[in-house]
Each structure stands twice: as C-alpha cells, then as structure tokens.
Amino acid sequence: MMLIKQFPDITLADTLFVFALEAEAGSVFSHVNTVFTGIGKVNAAIALTKAIHRQRPKLIVNLGSAGSQRYGKGEVVCCTRFVQRDMDVTPLGFARYETPLSDIPVLLEHGQAIPGLPQGTCGSGDSFEVNHGESPYDIVDMEAYVLALIARSEGIPFVCLKYISDDAGSDAAGDWSVQVHLAAEAFQRALFDPARQSE
C-alpha cells in the first residue's frame, strides 16, 4: 500500500478509511476498516468521533468525491489544507471563514502529502457549491474540513484524497451522479497500485 512510505510503522489494520457514502467506496475497500459518515459536516463529525473512540486508529484516510474548477474530472487530488467555506460571521467583524472566539485558523493545515498526486485546498460546507472562482480553495466537498479538524485535535495523522467528480458549475449535480461510482477504482489505483509504490 502506497501509504506505507509515509507511515512505515502504521499497519492497514490500524488505518481507518472514512467515506461519506458507500458509493464512493464500492467493493474495493471491503477488506479494510471503513466508516460511512453520511453527507455533511455534522454527520461526519458524529460518525468519525464514534469511530475513533471505538477503533482507536493510528491513521485516518478520508476518501471522497469533490468538485473543482481547477482540476479535471477523474483526477485524484491530495488535500492538505482545509477551509470551512460556509462559516461567515463578517457582520460581527470577523474575517470570512473565521470561526469566532476559537484558535482554529481560517486555513486549517493538517494532512500528509502523497508523492505523485497534486495538492489542493478543500473548502467544506453544508451546501452543494456551484461557483468558487475567487475563493481561497480549489476543491469543494461537504465533510473534509471537520474530519481534518477532529484528526488534528486527536493527534492522529490524516490523509485526504478527493476524486474530482464535477467542475462545481451548472452541470455539477448531473456530473456527480455519474462520476461518483468511478471514485473507488481511482482511489484503488492511487493507494494500492504497485507501480505507484515505487515512486
């Protein structure tokens, strides 16, 4: 498995693979520890917190579909930076995306880069975004930010790979419903392909 290079002391048995939906995992990940959180930051927070206390993983790997106007459909991008894109308390004088009265930075950095994969910044929010041209993120999803935040607070290494299913534009919903089923095979190639392990 490709991740062994980054985490030589962590076994597959100690790794937790986190998906929002079973469709993103297919049957490819039936042999590993998985949790399916459901859609959105609240569901993701509840499911991952329960899984951590139940399984005590040494590594969390979030795999999921996402939209992007920078990366093409079918690409797998490694996200190492995260923004809570629907946090907006600007009327009270806070910066956009800033969580008030907390020590959480606007740009949350907690993730391991994977050699050979492009790196992106993921904006997570409880909406299906169709336009993010001027935003400080180049990938949009609905869960990764809170997963990274929880992993950081628990002191657990985190890997986040996103399969680009749509361009986060006007055709995003239709593209997502077609592309999401191809995600598992793309993740399999990125993580388990012997040719990539030699990179």
Rank of each mutant, 00 (worst) to 15 (best):
E24C: 09
W176T: 10
N131V: 00
D138Y: 01
G125Q: 01
E185W: 05
S68Q: 06
A195K: 14
E129G: 00
T49C: 07
A113E: 13
Q6L: 11
Q179I: 03
A13D: 14
E98C: 06
L161S: 03
V106W: 01
R189L: 11
L21V: 06
D126P: 01
L63E: 05
D175N: 13
A25Q: 05
M1A: 14
Q197T: 12
Q197M: 13
I52C: 11
V89S: 12
A173H: 11
P57D: 05
G40T: 02
G155M: 08
D9N: 15
E154K: 11
V180L: 13
M142C: 06
S65C: 15
M2N: 15
C160G: 00
I114V: 15
A47I: 03
L191M: 11
V28C: 09
N33M: 10
D167I: 03
C79M: 03
P194T: 10
A13T: 09
M1I: 12
L63T: 07
M87E: 11
Q84W: 11
G125R: 00
S177R: 15
V18N: 06
F192A: 13
I60W: 01
L117G: 09
P157Y: 11
L21Y: 09
C79A: 14
Q55C: 10
N33A: 15
C160W: 00
Q6V: 00
L182F: 12
Q6M: 09
R189M: 10
R81H: 15
D141L: 00
D126H: 04
D103L: 07
G155I: 10
F128N: 01
K50D: 12
W176S: 08
Y71N: 05
V83Q: 01
F29D: 05
E143Q: 10
K50C: 10
G133D: 14
V35P: 02
G64D: 07
V42Y: 07
H181Y: 13
V76W: 04
P91N: 07
G125K: 00
Y97F: 14
Y145K: 03
T99P: 00
L191A: 11
I4W: 13
I164C: 02
V28R: 10
I4M: 14
F158R: 02
S124G: 02
N33R: 14
S102G: 07
I46P: 04
G123P: 02
Q6K: 05
